[in-house]
């Protein structure tokens, strides 16, 4: 009796596993470079799945930078298709290939699609995810949408799994909603670590929260994108490098010093 119930349970489990379509151990992953995040992700970002990045409207550039970093890690030297909704470019500015170059990526491998609306973007993305010549497909959409529901999300996931192409969905000015994504990130910009006045500042630093992870725990890190080595790493906050939470405000924030810029590096 007991064993019959157990076997039923085991059968159901395998059924669920089959439906979810992950044969354990066969998933290929890309390490992000950030030790903490890689540990939580069991080695890195899963290929052939959909990953979502959410951000508030004003944090669009930071979220874009984060997605660009993920795409670079996943696609390496393969072509990348970036599908963007027209409204997003109006609202946040268009993706600039010079900025792309400055982040250490190769603009020659990017093909950009201008989609009028979310529906077109979804169709194009689903089509592109089925093309295994691509390294990654990024879909950038703005605001809350009805069209990007569970069904649409599932379509993308299936297409991505079929061809093994990784899909990255950048949702700007949207709140996280249920989806079939493998991971879901919520990204803010983080302050540059304090440095001496003559030192360069302004490498992309992200406050990245892993809000959902289908195969493991979640987490929250401050990461820096290293433009020269093209990987994520821990942001070096001086001696506070180990702090996983945002550090206390730099002295520059204090109100009595508000009239003065704390750090001004002269050029030109």
């Amino acid at each position: 009796m007991m064993s019959a119930r157990m076997s039923t349970l085991a059968r159901l489990r395998t059924d669920i596993d089959r439906l979810q379509g992950d044969a354990d151990g066969t998933l290929s992953r890309t390490a992000l470079g950030h030790a903490g995040a890689d540990a939580v992700l069991q080695g890195g970002l899963v290929h052939g799945a959909v990953h979502e990045v959410f951000a508030q409207g004003c944090q669009s550039a930071a979220a874009t930078g984060f997605v660009v970093g993920l795409a670079r890690r996943v696609a390496v030297r393969r072509p990348l298709l970036w599908v963007r909704q027209d409204f997003s470019a109006l609202e946040n500015g268009a993706l600039s290939m010079h900025g792309w170059r400055e982040l250490g990526l190769d603009p020659r491998r990017v093909v950009m699609v201008y989609a009028h609306d979310v529906e077109t973007a979804l169709q194009v993305t689903a089509d592109a995810l089925a093309c295994d010549a691509l390294g990654a497909v990024v879909m950038e959409i703005w605001g809350e949408t009805r069209q990007f529901d569970l069904v649409a999300s599932r379509k993308l996931t299936l297409a991505a799994r079929e061809a093994g192409v990784t899909g990255l969905v950048l949702r700007l000015a949207a709140a996280p909603s249920p989806s079939t994504a493998e991971t879901r990130w919520i990204v803010h910009a983080a302050r540059s670590p304090p440095v001496a006045p003559w030192q360069a500042w302004g490498a992309p630093v992200f406050d990245a929260r892993l809000a959902r992870n289908r195969h493991g725990p979640t987490g929250h890190w401050i990461m820096e994108w290293n433009c020269d080595e093209c990987l994520f790493r821990d942001a070096l906050f001086g001696d506070a490098a180990a702090h996983p939470q945002p550090v206390a405000a730099a002295p520059a924030d204090r109100s009595h010093q508000a009239g003065e810029i704390a750090q001004w590096r002269r050029t030109g």
């Binding site: 268009a94 993706l95 400055e102």
Partner: peptide, 20 residues
Amino acid sequence: AEWPARIEGEPPLRPLRLFA
């Protein structure tokens, strides 16, 4: 295409998103 090379060790000097 030949793209201008970035300066090693410098942070990004051009923005990622540019307003038209």
